[in-house]
């Protein structure tokens, strides 16, 4: 796209430089208009974050008196201390972390194994599994929470981390990411390993897996975000106060009658900070992961 604009400008007679040209290049004008528009909207998009952080640093009294003047009443970290002391945010973090980490491990292992088998091996039922996974892409499994709850209750899995890890560990999307990647591995490489006497398991573990790190990273990051942000199912499954995840725990603060604005915003900031930090570090991989899978 950078090429587009250079091409456009060079194919036309140079029409004055930036600033005071009499005839302004319409393409350039257009692009500048785009940039202004986009920047404006991007800034609007950041407002809720800024607003939450600013509110969290103020005192409730100052907020009610001067809601929009951010500097009235001074800033302090008091609300964070209050939020941390009054809600078991530490426990919630830990639960979210353990659940997301387990989900990532299980998803990467189960889905890569299945994808490896689907791509490189001929076996009975292969077509059926492929069909199952394809169908699974379109099935709204979130809608099935009620029968899911009844099943998990009879299996005595409710109230455990497994109730959250297992259903997320078999996301068809993840199989597809690995599937697409394994198809890119040259077959002779696999055959060479086989001729060297490696078992299929060894081929999977020592040849295929090390080559598909990018795919594993994509799956890992996306699984982590999905599982960290899940709401309805953890809301139903984890009920003990300290056993909840961050999203479910914080949802108990959602109430129109809650007037402790600073404390609530401090909790929100604590709620979004870890993931936004993860996003900022891995933003390139996350965005490209989404783009390649195309499915949440």
């Amino acid at each position: 796209m950078s090429t587009v604009s250079t091409v456009t400008t060079t194919t036309r007679p140079p029409s004055g430089t930036d600033g005071g040209g009499r005839t302004v290049d319409p393409a350039k004008m257009f692009n500048r208009l785009c940039a202004t528009c986009m920047t404006l909207f991007a800034l609007i998009w950041l407002v809720p974050f800024v607003w939450a952080i600013a509110t969290s640093l103020r005192s409730d009294g100052a907020i009610t008196e001067h809601p929009t003047s951010l500097f009235a009443g001074g800033w302090s970290l008091h609300a964070y201390r209050y939020a941390w002391d009054n809600y078991p945010i530490g426990s919630w973090y830990l639960n979210s972390l353990v659940i997301s980490a387990l989900s990532v491990v299980f998803t990467v292992v189960l889905c890569s194994m299945a994808a490896f088998a689907l791509v490189f091996l001929r076996f009975r039922g292969r077509a059926a599994i492929l069909a199952l996974v394809t169908a699974g892409l379109m099935l709204p499994s979130e809608a099935l929470v009620l029968p899911q709850f009844i099943e998990y209750r009879s299996l005595h899995l409710l109230g455990t981390y497994w109730a959250l890890v297992l259903p997320y560990a078999v996301a068809p999307v993840s199989v597809f990411v690995f599937h697409a990647f394994f198809r890119g591995i040259p077959m002779p490489l696999i055959e060479a390993a086989r001729i060297d006497g490696a078992s299929w398991w060894r081929v999977y573990a020592t040849v295929a897996m090390p080559m598909c790190r990018p795919a594993a990273a994509t799956v890992a990051i996306l699984t982590f975000i999905t599982s960290w942000n899940a709401f309805l199912w953890p809301l139903l499954v984890l009920n003990q106060t300290k056993a909840q995840t961050i999203p479910v725990g914080l949802s108990s603060l959602v109430s129109p009658s809650n007037i402790q604005y600073a404390e609530v915003m401090a909790s929100s900031v604590l709620g979004f900070l870890p993931l936004v930090a993860v996003f900022l570090v891995f933003q390139r991989q996350i965005v490209q992961g989404i783009a390649t899978t195309g499915i949440r």
Binding site: L94, V98, G159, T160, Y161, Q240, A243
Partner: peptide, 20 residues
């Protein structure tokens, strides 16, 4: 974190009542 809050984590894995 695990060693600090081991018991609720373990109970979350085994399904026992978290004795917080």
């Amino acid at each position: 974190g695990l060693s600090a809050c081991a018991s609720p984590v373990v109970s979350g894995l085994t399904g026992a009542q978290p004795n917080t």
